[in-house]
Every structure is written in C-alpha cells, then in structure tokens.
Design a protein around this nucleic acid. Structure first.
Length: 107
DNA sequence: CCCGTGACGCCAC
DNA sequence: AGTGGCGCCACGG
C-alpha cells in the first residue's frame, strides 16, 4: 500500500475533520495537495468500505449542500449524522461560514 | 482503447 | 436562481 497516494492523503485529511465541522470536496482536495481534484475526493469516499471510521459525512459540496440526491437513504444518513453532531440545516443548506473547518490542526 | 458517468467546482449567461 | 459548458480524472462497460 502506498502511504502517500492520493487516496491515502484524502483519507488522512477527512479523518482530521472534527465532529461539528464540515469541509468541502474541493477543500479536502486542496488540503491533500490535489488542487482542482474535487471529483476525486467524491470518488475516493465512494469506495470506502461500509464500516469505515472515516467521517465521510463531514464532507459536503461548495454550496453547503449534501451531494446525494435529496431523499435518498444516503442523503438521510449523512444529514442525520451531521444533525447529531450539532450542525444546523437552513432549508437543506449548511452555513459554511459557521461550520466549515479551517484546518490549522497540523502537527 | 474509447466512452459515459459522477458523493465536484467555476464561470458565463 | 436555474441552466449549461468545461476542466478534472477515476471507474466500469
């Protein structure tokens, strides 16, 4: 396993996002050293094994919305988890201004 | 190998 | 605010 592959770096970034905060796909890509590769983040998260501890639900799109189709079981699961962590939805939208994680937590 | 698809993001209308 | 086009690129057929 290549511990410096794009997917591993993406996992590492997402893993650092604290409960109660969110990050956008593009932001994760940039933080992982892959600017302009937001799509890859979605692709990587999609492949996560189902029992994964990685907090994939804290990743939303740049509009502050969940990227699954509204009403899908996945959408509901993500929304449920975020709500549980204290994140508020304003008409299906999350205020990035209030919840977006700004990193700066590096060691 | 070519092509459609997609958990994206930006910008132009 | 909605729609469409494009850049990006991993995946599956």
């Amino acid at each position: 396993m290549d511990y410096n592959s794009p997917q591993v770096r993406i996992w590492q970034v997402v893993s650092q996002v604290p409960a109660g905060s969110v990050v956008t796909y593009g932001q994760v890509a940039a933080m992982a050293g892959l600017p302009n590769h937001a799509r890859m983040v979605g692709s990587v998260l999609k492949q996560l094994p189902k029992g994964s501890k990685i907090p994939w639900h804290r990743v939303i799109n740049s509009q502050g919305r969940i990227s699954f189709n509204e009403g899908s079981s996945q959408y509901l699961l993500q929304q449920e988890r975020l709500t549980t962590e204290g994140i508020e939805f304003d008409n299906e939208r999350i205020s990035l201004h209030r919840y977006q994680w700004q990193g700066g937590d590096e060691s």
